[in-house]
Design a protein around this nucleic acid. Structure first.
Lengths: 251, 251
DNA sequence: TTCGATTTGTTCGTATGTATT
DNA sequence: TAATACATACGAACAAATCGA
């Protein structure tokens, strides 16, 4: 058969990879909104002029990456940043007793600033580009455990202000997604141990000199584009960071 | 069609799940050795009396879990603990400058002991069961960065002695695999920040009172069976723990 | 070097099962 | 109940990589 999709393409990808790219493009362009169903497999097969099996193979990979979500009998949906997804894929702090819960977030500050050298490098923006900086205190079981310093490029979130941020419903990535169509799909985290600044130790109710976990996170959307840089301090007295690759494996 | 495999089965899995289970059983039983090719897809299809597509779907999942490895034109192979696999899936310490290298291991001690309460819980063995304890010092760029305390149930590694361990070629999991047919396929790690014991701080060349990363790892083989419990101390002055979920995603 | 056999990779098509609305 | 959507399973044909004769 004539390879319609790859026809004008110099890199000869398999058909299903091309289909995957086109689906991803539609997602990145916001054609299909988070939470909504994408067209059915037979419809996509017709649109792309490929067989249904080829469409399924493309969707298979996007489902494995947690970008799409299949439901038999209902359809295939754009993954949303519900609390469940956050708990299982983006929030890694658990109690040393094994307890797993979502934190309650309290915003401590919200201000406009310019990118420093670290922000610049991590967010791939020019030095001095406008940024928003938000400090949050996260409580687990009613007690402060984590302090987050979030940096985002102001240009990606026009009109985002303290009110909007503080009054959001749901998670922070849910806000990015619902209000700006920016879908965080991957994070990369780097952990080390250090003594937190006195101010942060105070917020976390830690004795001076006690070590904390420092986590530097970059959050990405489609096509490896950085969205957010976040430095977290974690009081690891009663909590720890869980890295468990089972979550991403098939049953 | 008559569901041959599920016939005598009370839990009605899809055929390809049954095939997957049977392949996993053969792997766990050591019928197919690490590094060797498993039977070709047409042969497996014939053996299991299913279509080749069903066999492929079962293998697809095992490949996604890095248990099997496909190579077009050659066959499908049982994954081995090469240095590459270790570097990408089991070793998470990288330089803060982004450098990624395998450590050079130096064994400090090897002794026989009995399981404490922590070992008991993590390894799912009775209190007081015989264990082997190995302490290793790991160097990166020639300098000590990590100190590992490894505990394994002695019963799983009959005849393993200091000589064998120290003289091994390749990685530790490579030794488990090559000599005992025990294939580590998953790890779960829990991280916190703490001051290391003075002795370990000394080994890592750290000033007293400086915090380190403490990593508690459980390594598993097929069917969720724990194989090893390991407590690592990491001098996070120049290195950090990298948690990057991209590695496990399809391209 | 060439060729043929083998093995996995891709694509198509069809039929049927199961879940949802 | 009927229509729709995804899930499973089968089969066929050809492409691409590998390997040995």
């Amino acid at each position: 058969m004539t390879n319609t999709l790859a026809a004008g393409n110099l890199t000869f990808n398999p058909l299903y990879k091309e289909v995957k790219i086109r689906i991803t493009r539609s997602l990145a362009a916001g054609e299909w909104k988070p939470g909504a169903a994408i067209p059915s497999e037979p419809r996509l097969a017709e649109q792309f002029n490929v067989s249904i099996g080829t469409v399924r193979k493309a969707i298979d990979e996007l489902v494995a990456e947690k970008i799409l979500l299949r439901q038999q009998g209902r359809g295939t949906f754009v993954a949303t940043h519900t609390e469940d997804r956050t708990l299982f894929y983006f929030f890694h702090i658990v109690g040393k007793d094994g307890s797993k819960e979502l934190p309650v977030t309290e915003m401590l500050s919200f201000r406009r600033d310019k990118a420093g050298s670290e922000d610049m490098a991590r967010l791939q923006i020019p030095r001095g580009a406008k940024t928003l900086r938000i400090r949050n205190l996260l409580k687990l079981g009613g007690k402060p455990v984590i302090c987050d310093d979030i940096v985002v490029p102001a240009a990606m979130f026009p009109g985002l202000d303290e009110e909007t941020f503080a009054r959001r419903e749901g998670t922070i990535y849910g806000l990015y997604q619902a209000r700006y169509g920016i879908n965080v799909i991957r994070i990369s985290e780097r952990l080390s141990a250090a003594k937190p600044p006195a101010r942060i130790a105070g917020l976390l109710g830690m004795q001076p000199g006690k070590p904390a976990l420092m986590i530097k996170r970059v959050a990405y959307t489609y096509n490896y584009m950085p969205v957010e840089y976040r430095v977290s301090w974690v009081n690891s007295g009663n909590h720890e960071y869980l890295s468990d690759l089972w979550k991403s494996a098939p049953a």
